[in-house]
């Protein structure tokens, strides 16, 4: 256990160093922008993973928090004349309040019912954004130059903005890992595995799950604020079921219940999406095919799935002891 966490810490440091060095390694704005997209998607996927991976609650409405925070951030600063910091704080606060309400409603059910309620609530939000054109701009969306200038730093510069989002990713990794190890996070995992036993032990399972839901919504809102800054535009697409599904795919693809799985998943999905859109327009089709393929062939996610594949590849040629040794070592993570 100690070894595993040290290994993870080393891995995290290496990853962060690589990300910090990124703008020196690639000089093209195009790639830096993709890296920024990955960072934002990673924050969103990590927040959903609190529910899916650690809580066992599959939400198909996580785009709600991304979209609502993005709409509020842009609306407040371009239409309501609120300052940049004020817009961001109000947007995140209001979105967290929304998560409180949605969490209350969705947690009236569990399992499939939870999934259905989150999906329905998310699509109703999408419908509001789409139809309430006088407020949201309808299908045309809302936009405007809203990237702030904190301490006089010009965030219109892609590299500067990349570092800006990276700060939030580091914060998210740190605070979400703290959350997972905390008493609340541990009891959330207990409630995932043995809800009745946890109840019998005197834990308020509902409250644990609700607080986690709100926590996830809060980080979803942070991702939404960054999304608004990055695109400087938001349309109903940000709230749509496909966005929720993409986020869930990041979590499932990377491996649920691991801290870094969603980050890997976010990178895979964003890169795939950018590469594919450059050649064909069939992203939705591919998204569907990937979903079906992952469920059928790699139900445990790409990262653990590849590890399993590699292990079976290693095992197959040799039935001797030397083949089984490295496989045993990998179990520590």
């Amino acid at each position: 256990m100690i070894r595993a966490s040290r290994q993870q810490a080393v891995l995290a440091l290496v990853a962060i160093a690589a990300l910090l060095a990124m703008p020196w390694l690639v000089t093209s704005d195009y790639y830096i922008n993709i890296a920024t997209q990955i960072v934002i998607a990673a924050i969103l996927a990590m927040s959903l993973n609190v529910l899916v991976g650690f809580g066992g609650m599959i939400s198909l409405g996580h785009a709600s928090y991304l979209g609502v925070a993005a709409y509020l951030t842009i609306y407040l600063s371009t239409h309501a004349g609120v300052g940049a910091l004020g817009s961001a704080l109000i947007a995140i606060g209001a979105t967290t309040l929304l998560a409180m309400l949605f969490g209350y409603l969705a947690l009236r059910a569990s399992g499939l019912g939870f999934l259905m309620i989150t999906l329905a609530l998310g699509q109703i939000l999408w419908g509001i954004a789409y139809r309430w054109a006088s407020l949201t701009g309808g299908d045309n969306g809302l936009g405007g130059p809203i990237r702030p200038r904190p301490f006089g730093i010009d965030l219109m510069n892609p590299t500067a903005f990349f570092y800006f989002t990276l700060i939030f990713l580091v914060l998210a990794v740190w605070l979400i890992s703290r959350f997972v190890q905390s008493g609340l996070g541990q009891s959330l995992q207990g409630a995932r595995d043995q809800p009745r036993r946890m109840r019998a032990l005197g834990y308020n399972v509902w409250l644990i799950q609700w607080l986690s839901f709100v926590f996830a919504g809060f980080w979803g809102a942070i991702a939404g604020m960054l999304y608004a800054y990055y695109h400087q535009f938001v349309s109903p697409q940000a709230l749509h079921l496909t966005t929720s599904a993409e986020t869930l795919l990041m979590v499932v693809a990377g491996g649920t219940g691991t801290l870094f799985g969603p980050v890997v998943g976010a990178a895979l999905v964003v890169i795939l999406k950018n590469v594919v859109s450059a050649y064909i327009t069939r992203w939705l089709m591919l998204l569907g095919v990937v979903f079906v393929a992952i469920v059928l062939f790699m139900p445990e996610g790409i990262v653990p799935g590849l590890r399993r594949l590699r292990e079976t590849m290693k095992m197959r040629p040799a039935s001797s002891a030397e083949a089984s040794l490295p496989a045993a070592e990998e179990r520590t993570t």
């Binding site: 499939l112 999934l115 496909t242 869930l248 095919v289 979903f291 079906v292 992952i294």
Partner: peptide
Amino acid sequence: RLTGQPLAQVLVTLGIAFIIADA
């Protein structure tokens, strides 16, 4: 093939919905 795995079944039907929509 996914009997007894309700969440896997949901995700598959979601994937199929996207495939049909795009087709």
